[in-house]
């Protein structure tokens, strides 16, 4: 990136980031290797594939689904998914008549252990401000048109509790195995702004 000059000659964030990293490293306050490890974790290990594995397990194992809805944190930990922003995860089920959609109006709280870092639309002021006020319109703009009778619950993540949506298993997937179901489950469906569709 090239440095930019705004009206107040604000330095580009890439340059300020490099400056901050240098200053802290020179003083021995941070270890660049620790930074690399954090970045690698969220680029390659902790992402929506984790949540997809949880959902596919719940779709194929009724006892696991029961445990997941009863104590999401523990059932998710069974699959090895724990860590920051996952102290207490509550799983809610979307059905043909009830639809949950998750937001954090105050910042961008998100269940990192199962979904990774949030996508850009989740952090956008338009989503954060509007989904608690006109969820049907917001969902429609995002490509999800819900039938009139569907009851919508918007989950505003105001404490350290994190929400994960268990999407509906789509019709026509009865013959698929757990492993075959995993790639169908999208991040957007696990936040509640999309449905899972059959291949």
């Amino acid at each position: 990136m090239t440095p930019t000059s705004g009206p107040d000659d604000r330095l580009a964030p890439a340059l300020r980031t490099e400056a901050l990293e240098q200053l802290l490293t020179e003083r021995g306050l941070i270890d660049p290797a620790a930074m690399d490890a954090i970045i690698a974790t969220y680029e390659t290990q902790v992402g929506p594939l984790n949540g997809a594995k949880v959902v596919a397990r719940a779709w194929t194992d009724p006892q696991y689904k029961s445990r997941l809805l009863q104590d999401g944190t523990a059932a998710i930990a069974e699959l090895g998914f724990t860590g920051p922003q996952g102290e207490h995860i509550v799983v809610v089920e979307n059905t043909p008549t009830t639809h949950n959609v998750v937001v954090c109006t105050l910042c961008s709280c998100y269940p990192w252990p199962v979904l990774g870092l949030p996508p850009s639309w989740y952090k956008d002021p338009a989503y954060r401000s509007r989904v608690v006020r006109e969820p049907r319109a917001v969902l429609s703009e995002m490509g999800l048109d819900l039938a009139d009778g569907v009851r919508i619950t918007v989950r505003d993540s105001t404490s350290e509790v994190r929400w994960l949506v268990l999407p509906e298993r789509p019709a026509g997937t009865e013959h698929l195995t757990e492993e075959e179901l995993v790639p169908l489950v999208t991040r957007d469906a696990m936040v509640g702004v999309a449905k899972v569709t059959a291949p």
Binding site: T105, L106, C107, P119, S120, W121, D124, P125, A126, Y127, R128, S129, R130, V131, V132, R133, V138, E141, M142, G143, D156, R187, D188, V193, A194
Partner: peptide, 16 residues
Amino acid sequence: ADMGGTEGWGPVRPPR
């Protein structure tokens, strides 16, 4: 930061 219900932010950005 307290954005819930505030207006003037325009359309949402659909997932990419």
